[in-house]
Design a protein around this nucleic acid. Sequence first.
DNA 1: GCACTAACCTATTCACATT
DNA 2: AATGTGAATAGGTTAGTGC
Length: 202
Amino acid sequence: MAEDTSSHEMVGTSHRRRRTKFTEDQLKILINTFNQKPYPGYATKQKLALEISTEESRIQIWFQNRRARCGFQKRPGPETSESSQSHGQDQPDRKFQSREARRCRTVYSASQLCTLIEAFMKNPYPGIDYRERLAKEIGIPESRVQIWFQNRRSRFHLQRKRELVSLEPEDQGKLEGLQGAEDTQNGTDFPSDSHSSRARTW
DNA sequence: GCACTAACCTATTCACATT
DNA sequence: AATGTGAATAGGTTAGTGC
């Protein structure tokens, strides 16, 4: 109970969301659903969220963590069902998975993207407070902002990898050295203030 | 301290629209 | 068909909470 968004006043790098405490009843419902459907679709998650009065994104995280704890290690596989034998080695149980529909794809307007990109260039690891502010500003749920940042960072990393591969060996050395040096959060160097050259293909 | 677990991360894949 | 990108996933780490 030490939280509350004012405990640290920070630039936004790592201020986490307040930890959710599920009640016994909530957990009962979650576990029950999990036992029947470890990979619920969006509709199920929404319904659950309503039922136990929490956000859908919390349900999503709970299922992720639960699967990890329960040792799930196979995706349910694309809903092609019978067709994917090529790598269908040892699906645990291919019953429950005529996969339910995903959340509808969010379509961002140009101005929303502009705001997001600008924010990303300032800070690729925004804390909960900043994400919420941003979400409010552009009128989309905070969970979407979080996912957008995740995808953006991933693609940034990917882009950098590709660059490294295409560089001369000597330049690679330089770059790698640099990386090690300014490594911030997770072993990466993001543009902290000025984004470099390519910002727009992804 | 330690165990448990929500929150968060990267890397990868899926899915679908656009080019 | 290739590309771009939001959504979902596995698997890992960080950190709050309760004992």
